[in-house]
Design a protein around this nucleic acid. Structure first.
Length: 333
DNA sequence: AATGTAGTCAACCGCTGGCGG
DNA sequence: TCCGCCAGCGGTTGACTACAT
């Protein structure tokens, strides 16, 4: 919320800045350069040439005074950035090598987003270049490997993603039930629709709340967001049980412990005591609570391979729109 | 061929901490 | 000790390009 206010205030000041600046007098801190005159945007070859020649001849000295001395219509800050990120003779350009990638990943696991510190260990690479490479390549690479790029720990959101097929199957099953049942279809249509809406609501809530939490504290978010979502999913599983009960009182929900690769995992189950009567409804099995990341009950990294949707088959990659479409419209015809 | 979408990266913005007066 | 200036830093933006539809 405050970030939003800051943005609005920033925008207003952005609009009024030149006006305020022109009548500021000697109040407050003077701008680093005259925003009304100074040039912004991409550098031209002529500007590059001027900057390089000046620095080679005199050194950069005070960046604040450099543009005036070098005959450049630029902010000193802009000159420094252009020099350090692009024009400096020792800047190495081109693709990052495997070794460089490994060094970046390793250092990032120790230092976090300390791009300038990381860049000092990689001669010829600038902090900006490393930061961009991280955000565009390495982050994705780690995600596909099942590693959280923030914590460098095995991803903890995969169990939630792994639940989606289960939820889909449940929601789809309800749709089939509603359309195939001869018993008062009109009475079942509304609860089915309500459950679908709750599935969508849960997904949307997960998608919209987690990032804001992440921004403040990724570690806390990983456990908090997941815990809340899991609780919602548990509730959802119970709703599904209540609605999709084709066998009367024999349909049950509860909690139990299941073994996953030899590790005990608490799950919520919903099952039907008469399988032949409800073969279209697979048992719903949902992790009950998120375990702490370092808990022995959490599933180890190597055990997630089968659950990572992006790893086994590219076609299995989750598309949120398709999921929501499927949940909302399956069985509606 | 035209349009839309996603990816990339140079440059900008605003904050922080060091330093000197 | 306080204050202002400055360089450096990390996050974000937006222009450009490649690819898909």
């Amino acid at each position: 919320m405050s970030a939003c206010v800051d943005r609005v205030v920033g925008f207003v000041f952005h609009l009024l800045g030149p006006l305020i600046g022109s009548c500021r007098g000697d109040m407050g801190r003077p701008p680093c350069c005259d925003e009304m005159v100074v040039k912004k945007g991409p550098w031209t070859p002529e500007e590059d040439k001027k900057l390089v020649e000046y620095i080679q001849r005199h050194g950069h000295g005070s960046w604040r005074n450099l543009p005036k001395n070098a005959g450049l219509n630029r902010c000193g800050k802009s000159c420094r950035l252009r020099w350090t990120n692009y024009l400096r003779p020792d800047v190495k350009r081109g693709k990052f090598s495997e070794d460089e990638e490994q060094i970046i990943i390793h250092l990032h696991s120790i230092l976090g987003n300390k791009w300038s510190t990381i860049s000092r260990r990689l001669p010829g690479r600038t902090d900006n270049e490393i930061k961009n490479y991280w955000n565009t390549h390495l982050k994705k690479k780690l995600l596909l490997m099942g590693v959280d790029p923030v914590t460098h720990a095995p991803r903890t959101d995969l169990d939630l993603l792994a639940l989606l097929p289960v939820l889909l199957a449940a929601a789809t099953g309800l749709g089939n039930l509603g359309s195939s049942s001869n018993d008062a279809p009109g009475l079942q249509a509304d609860p089915v629709h309500l459950v679908r809406l709750r599935v969508v609501q849960t997904l949307i809530q997960a998608m919209t709340t987690a990032p804001s939490i992440d921004a403040m504290n990724p570690l806390a978010a990983a456990s908090l967001g997941r815990t809340q979502l899991n609780q919602q999913l548990v509730g959802l599983a119970r709703d599904l049980s209540a609605v999709a009960n084709p066998c009367g009182s024999s349909f049950q929900t509860g909690t139990k412990t299941e073994s996953c690769s030899g590790i005990a995992v608490p799950v919520v189950f919903s099952s039907c005591a008469a399988p032949t009567a409800c073969s279209i409804h697979p048992p719903i099995s949902i992790p009950q609570e998120s375990a702490p990341m370092d808990s022995p009950a959490s599933i180890p990294f190597e055990d997630w391979h089968g659950l990572n949707p992006g790893e086994s088959d590219a076609d299995d990659m989750i598309c949120w729109k398709d999921i929501i479409d499927q949940i909302c419209w399956t069985g509606q015809s």
